[in-house]
Design a protein around this nucleic acid. Structure first.
Length: 471
RNA sequence: GUGGCUAUAGUUCAAUGGUAGAACACUGGAUUGUGGUUCCAGACACGAGGGUUCAAUUCCCUCUAGCCACCCCA
């Protein structure tokens, strides 16, 4: 902006309103989009915790990380997720790009991973191929608690392994993920059988609901479900519908031998591994491609009772993650027949849970050494020192842009420094430096050359090692 | 897509038909070489539009946004 304008009228008259006052935040035309969120510094610490845990666990079980583009062809989801699913029907961020192609922001991870498996000829790799994935997904839904239009998932997939061990390991990893974060969860598990089993079951289920006018007693949603997606009749929450459901046939009774054996094996393995699960005959999942094992991770019931004042408000039990087997999908998408299974869990919901339960983030144990300076000469010297110490493995911090010692120590205090090293003109001339214990407030002047041994003495054994590394 | 609740400072919340206040956070100061406790000072807010009224942040309507629930999902 030209200088003269600035000085003539310092605001409001000439300057466009938007720039002049810094107030509009609520009605900001540039505000972030609905259902999207910024993850600020403190909150990101939770994400880091989860990301580390995910990397750690996936690595332990032999999964390799993969990343795929945020954008995919719309058709990918139409074919895999399912034409008639809500995700594809009404929740996709899809658009025509500049070359006229129909594009979508990925609403889930599995289709991309199936695509990648086929496209890169991964059937030529040693099977099974075990991959994990961490990234944002997009669904144009109405936001509410634990639901965003952009959310982050941790996904694991196993390709080329028909064994029930594969299903079990996924569930085990999911279970470990939560319990190692001190979140109590329940594993809901069911088997949808193979496609033929499911077909037969659905037919039988519809017959059941047609009997003796049960249909007319259903809630409106369920009436709609009856024709659209009968399996969904099973997990309605309306008391009346639940009552009717009591006597409904269960899909487990319709499993052919292969599918039944597979399911039983999974359950036996889970027993061996002491993973608590809840056999839930009413669990069905919303995606088209599942067969056999399906599971969902929900918060444990005892989780509800931490409400101190007043009646415990029953919070909606949103699922934290889910997955299952999808043996037919790879072939359907144009690959070789390849059994596969996978699961995903939503980081936002896990973060929410961790906050709800006040699970503390472990603090970094390594002590912070703060370097403070007074005067330009001292600053030049200590900026160099900072580099040396940082390379030497110390956790050093600074606020060299600040001139006053007061401001610097304030910063040291804010970040929880254990010691501050203070270098002023006087010390610079003497070849000394002040070491200040930030907890006790005591300080002493030491010879500049003795910094390392002095710090080693004060920080104890663990830090000896760091000093050694330095050499 | 349907329904309920809410909208005041950076945050969490007050009050009020007539000059909007606190706490925390922020900036500066209390011997210009010393943080955390204390004291002082300062900056920062009534989501937008319309209506009723002499007068609206307050009452009414609309919009927008947020939260929550249903649907569905992580």
């Amino acid at each position: 902006m030209p200088k003269k304008e600035m000085s003539k009228n310092n605001n409001k008259t000439n300057i466009p309103k938007e720039e002049a006052d810094h107030k509009p935040r609520r009605d900001n035309k540039h505000a972030r989009l609905k259902g999207m969120k910024d993850i600020l510094f403190d909150e990101y610490r939770y994400y880091n915790l989860l990301i580390n845990k995910a990397n750690d666990l996936a690595g332990s079980y032999g999964f390799n990380r993969i990343e795929t583009p945020v954008l995919e062809r719309f058709k990918l989801y139409e074919r895999s997720t399912g034409k008639d699913t809500d995700i594809v029907l009404k929740e996709m961020y899809d658009f025509i790009d500049k070359s006229g192609d129909k594009i979508a922001l990925r609403p889930e991870a599995t289709p991309s991973l199936v695509r990648a498996y086929i496209e890169h000829g991964m059937f030529n790799m040693p099977q099974p191929v075990k991959m994990y994935w961490l990234g944002p997904l997009f669904r144009h839904e109405k936001p509410q608690s634990g639901r965003y239009r952009q959310h982050t998932q941790f996904d694991l997939e196993i390709f080329g392994d028909p064994s029930p061990v594969a299903d079990t390991q996924l569930i085990l990893i999911a279970y470990n993920f939560f319990s190692e974060l001190q979140i109590n969860v329940q594993v809901q598990i069911n088997s949808l059988g193979d496609p033929e089993d499911r077909e037969e079951y659905i037919a039988r289920l519809m017959e059941f609901y047609k009997e003796r006018g049960k249909r007319s007693k259903l809630c409106n949603d369920c009436k709609r479900r009856f024709s659209k997606n009968p399996l969904r009749l099973l997990d309605c929450k309306e008391p009346d519908c639940i009552a009717i459901r009591e006597d409904a046939p269960q899909i487990v009774d319709f499993l052919a031998d292969n599918a039944r054996d597979h399911f039983i094996k999974v359950l036996e393995y889970l027993d061996d591994l002491e993973v608590p699960y809840n056999l839930n005959p009413f669990l069905v999942r919303g995606l088209d491609y599942y067969n056999r094992t399906v599971f969902e991770i929900t918060p444990a019931i005892d989780d509800l009772e931490n409400n101190e004042n007043g009646p415990a408000v029953q919070k909606r039990q949103i699922s934290l993650g889910g997955g299952g087997r999808y043996d037919g999908l790879v072939e359907k998408m144009g690959g070789r027949p390849t059994p596969a299974c996978g699961f995903g869990l939503g980081l936002e919901r896990v973060v929410q849970k961790i906050k709800e339960k006040n699970i503390p983030l472990h603090k970094d144990k390594e002590p912070i050494i703060f370097l403070a300076q007074l005067g330009d000469q001292a600053r030049r010297k200590i900026m160099v020192m900072f580099e040396e110490m940082r390379r030497g493995g110390y956790k050093v911090r600074q606020a060299f842009t600040k001139d006053s010692l007061k401001a610097q120590l304030e910063e040291a205090n804010r970040i929880g420094a254990k010691y501050s090293l203070i270098l002023g003109q006087k010390e610079l001339l003497d070849g000394t430096i002040i070491i200040r214990d930030m907890e006790s407030g005591t300080q002493e002047v030491i010879d500049m050359k003795k910094i390392n041994p002095e710090l080693a003495r004060r920080l104890g054994e663990k830090e000896e090692i760091i000093i050694n590394n330095k050499q």
